[in-house]
C-alpha cells in the first residue's frame, strides 16, 4: 500500500469528510424532515402531483401525468350549491404526490388527520379520485379523499367544475422552459415583502419537487403573482410577446408554446404575425395584431394556468 506513510492523513481525511457530511446533511435533514406541512404545502402537492422535473411518467416534460385543479360552487354529487371550493382531480392512473405515498412527508399531525378523517388510505393511483384540503377544528390542515368522504367521482367533479386549471402541467412547462432562471419563486425574508409578498414558511415546501426557487433574479418574483395580476388576457399577450404589454421587457417570446392551432382550430402563422407586429412596431399600423387564444390542450394554456394559480 503506497499510501502507508500517509495512513494518518487518510484516516483524518475520512473522519473530517464524514463529520462534515454528518453536520451538513444528516442533522439538517433530520431537522427539515421534522417540519409539518402547511396548508400551502398540501395544496401545492395536490396541484403539482408527483414530480415536475424529469421522471419516468413524463420523461420529456410534456406536462403528462398531472392532476387537474378545479373550482367548485356546487356539490358534484348532489348538485346542491355550496361555498366556492378548490378540488384536485386525479384521473385514473395519475401518480400521487410524495405526501400521499410516503410516510414522514406531511408531518405527524397532518398525516394522522389525513388518514383518520381524510381517509387517504383508501385512495389508489389505479382508480384515481378527487382530493380537497380541509382543516380540523384545531386548525391542522389535512388532505381529504373526497371520493371516499363525499362520494365525488372524477367525472362528476370535472363536469361540475366552474373552472379547470392545468397548473401541474404548467409547472412542468415552467421547469422545462427555464422560466426559473430569471423569475424566482422566493420572496426574500428581508425587504421583498412590499413588492413580492409574503416569503414562504418552512413547511410550505413539503412534498414539492423540484422547488425551483431560482437563484439569479432578472425579473419579478412570481410566488404570489396571481394575487397581483390575475388577468388571463394580460398573461396571454405577455407570453405571446412580452413587448406588447411591457415595452421594456427583456423576456423571450413564448409564442411557440401555442402549438399549431388556436382555441377555434384556426392555424397559427407565427411568421405572418411577426410581420404584422414589425409593421406595428415601426409605426406603420396603429394596432398590434391580435394574439391568438391558446387551445385548451396547448402548452401555453398550461403555463398560464400555473402562473394565474400562484396566489
Amino acid at each position: 500500500m503506497a499510501f502507508r506513510e500517509y495512513r494518518i492523513g487518510c484516516v483524518m481525511f475520512g473522519v473530517a469528510l464524514s463529520l462534515s457530511m454528518f453536520i451538513t446533511i444528516v442533522l439538517p435533514g433530520l431537522d427539515i424532515s421534522s417540519m409539518s406541512s402547511t396548508k400551502i404545502a398540501l395544496e401545492k402537492q395536490l396541484t403539482y402531483g408527483w414530480e415536475t422535473g424529469f421522471n419516468y411518467f413524463d420523461p420529456f416534460l410534456q406536462g403528462k401525468d398531472k392532476p387537474i385543479k378545479v373550482t367548485l360552487t356546487k356539490n358534484p354529487k348532489t348538485g346542491a350549491p355550496m361555498d366556492k371550493r378548490n378540488a384536485y382531480v386525479f384521473p385514473a392512473g395519475t401518480h400521487f404526490p410524495n405526501g400521499l405515498t410516503h410516510d414522514g412527508i406531511l408531518g405527524d399531525d397532518v398525516q394522522k388527520a389525513s388518514q383518520e378523517i381524510g381517509k387517504i388510505d383508501q385512495a389508489s393511483e389505479e382508480q384515481g379520485g378527487v382530493f380537497v384540503v380541509s382543516t380540523t377544528s384545531d386548525d391542522t390542515p389535512y388532505i381529504e379523499f373526497a371520493s371516499a368522504t363525499k362520494g365525488w367521482t372524477v367525472d362528476a367533479t370535472l363536469k361540475a367544475a366552474d373552472a379547470q386549471y392545468l397548473a401541474g402541467s404548467g409547472k412542468t412547462m415552467f421547469v422545462r422552459e427555464g422560466c426559473w432562471w430569471c423569475h424566482t419563486l422566493l420572496p426574500e425574508q428581508t425587504q421583498d415583502w412590499q413588492s413580492f409578498g409574503r416569503p414562504p414558511l418552512v413547511g410550505d415546501f413539503n412534498g414539492e419537487s423540484p422547488t425551483t426557487f431560482g437563484s439569479d433574479r432578472k425579473a419579478p418574483d412570481l410566488l404570489h403573482v396571481g394575487s397581483r395580476n390575475s388577468s388571463r388576457e394580460w398573461m396571454t399577450m405577455h407570453f405571446f410577446n412580452p413587448r406588447l404589454v411591457q415595452p421594456h421587457s427583456i423576456m423571450p417570446r413564448y409564442d411557440y408554446l401555442w402549438g399549431d392551432v388556436d382555441v377555434n382550430g384556426q392555424p397559427i402563422d407565427l411568421k405572418a404575425w411577426d410581420e404584422a407586429y414589425l409593421s406595428y412596431a415601426a409605426g406603420e399600423s396603429i394596432y398590434a395584431p391580435d394574439v391568438p387564444i391558446p387551445a385548451a390542450d396547448s402548452e401555453a394554456r398550461m403555463l398560464i394556468d400555473f402562473i394565474i394559480n400562484l396566489k
Binding site: I32, N98, S209
Partner: peptide, 17 residues
C-alpha cells in the same frame, strides 16, 4: 434528491449542497 426522490426543502438544500 434524484436517486431517492427527496422533496421539499431537503431537495432545495441538497441542490445547493
Amino acid at each position: 434528491p434524484e436517486w431517492l426522490h427527496l422533496t421539499g426543502l431537503n431537495e432545495a438544500y441538497m441542490t445547493w449542497w
